[in-house]
Design a protein around this nucleic acid. Structure first.
Lengths: 224, 224
DNA sequence: AAACATCTGTTGTTTTTACAACGAAAAGGA
DNA sequence: TCCTTTTCGTTGTAAAAACAACAGATGTTT
């Protein structure tokens, strides 16, 4: 297990927990490791999750097949990242996605009850683990809320303005850089790239904003 | 504080905690109560939240003003419900919304550090409180993820199919009822009601589904 | 420097949606 | 029962987006 320490140090769930405490804790939590071949299904949609999974090596795909069999890949899970944590925390709600190994993958499973149930004593790092879990959930929440706020606007124009306004607010300035290129931004906002590009230029021509590459500047113009 | 027990019994955060334990715990957490007039701003966007708020009576509005001053009301918080819990759990991220009293409102504030820090002993209900907090966060997560999965589809048609497919899956049957009327469904999916209505009828004419009022049935037809 | 790949803006066409306005059906209340 | 309100489908029009295809710009590799 020691060879995974570099992964653990990066993992959000284990932040602030020292290596020595970590190895002790993993035993205390009776963590279990599994290996999967490429293409193998780890967990089927509809399963009740009683544990959180952490990818140690390789990668996972989360996907969903709709009523007519059309498959949508929803996320890729990389080393240090978790999967199933939300549903493990709820316990009554079955997993809404299927988890499949995108390549040969090693996974560490942590029993959610052992995480949530505070061991009797001396386990200061266990408290930290719980705080980290809460932090992970809350952070995901923020990301989802923000994305939803932008994508829920009806037009590409409004989605762009909502996103750029939020980035400006985050930067605390009318000038800021965004972490996406055009294609990534379009995917994030759920719109077509070329249509977005032309909308962006239309906004520039109207004097609402300026940009060069990933650097944007919003300008104060009166809205009609 | 006793007069709020009916509210507390319904509140997700206090589920599974008995009245006697609750009153004891609220003291232990040094909960603080505040009263606000209609229109008064409780918390400004950008504030760091160090506590969770619970509405005791009245109602709150969460809103966001963009760079150009356009206001969007994002949610209404009713008695028993929380606000700021996500940002309180993160601690490093400032609140992304402004909180305003929609009417005369009473609010109970709970220090997040006292919730997260396990008191030394005998506090079995404190553990339950933590589990409830995690549950609240996780459940919100599920709701956001689902909505995002539907709204991220490009066309109204795909949004509908994604949503109905998920409802069918949840019901475990091709026949099911949905908890929305047309206008609510359109709002949920972020589309125009009348356009959605016509799309829905087009799908019916194509033989993809059938419906009467809120009762739907998906039919297995080969996709091209 | 040359060759290649990627990123971005542009344009034109087709499809889809938003919007507005209306009437019928259903639900609810007096 | 009659009246009112809400809900839902329908239609036509204008606006917007998706899509496809391309060219210039930028960046990278050899």
């Amino acid at each position: 297990m020691k060879k995974y320490l570099p992964i653990f140090r990066k993992a959000s769930l284990f932040q602030g927990i020292r290596d020595v405490d970590l190895t002790a804790m993993l035993q205390c939590l009776s963590a279990k490791q599994s290996t999967y071949q490429k293409g193998q299904v780890l967990v089927q949609k509809g399963t009740m999750m009683s544990s959180v999974g952490m990818v140690l090596s390789g990668a996972l795909h989360l996907f969903n097949d709709d009523f007519w069999g059309n498959r949508t890949i929803l996320a890729q899970v990389e080393p240090g990242e978790l999967f199933g944590e939300t549903y493990a925390c709820i316990q009554t709600e079955p997993l809404h996605v299927t988890v499949q190994a995108a390549e040969a993958t090693e996974v560490l499973y942590l029993d959610i009850r052992k995480i949530m149930t505070l061991c009797t004593a001396a386990c200061t790092f266990h408290a930290r683990l719980l705080q980290n879990l809460i932090f992970v959930l809350a952070q995901k929440n923020v990301l989802l809320t923000q994305k939803l706020e932008h994508t829920s606007k009806r037009t590409t124009r409004d989605k762009l303005l909502s996103y750029l306004s939020a980035e400006s607010s985050k930067a605390g300035s009318a000038t800021f850089t965004i972490p996406f290129n055009r294609q990534e931004l379009a995917d994030y906002l759920g719109v077509d790239r070329s249509a977005m590009s032309s909308t962006l230029c239309k906004l520039r021509d109207e004097g609402v904003l300026q940009f060069q590459k990933n650097r944007f500047e919003l300008t104060h113009t009166m809205q009609p």
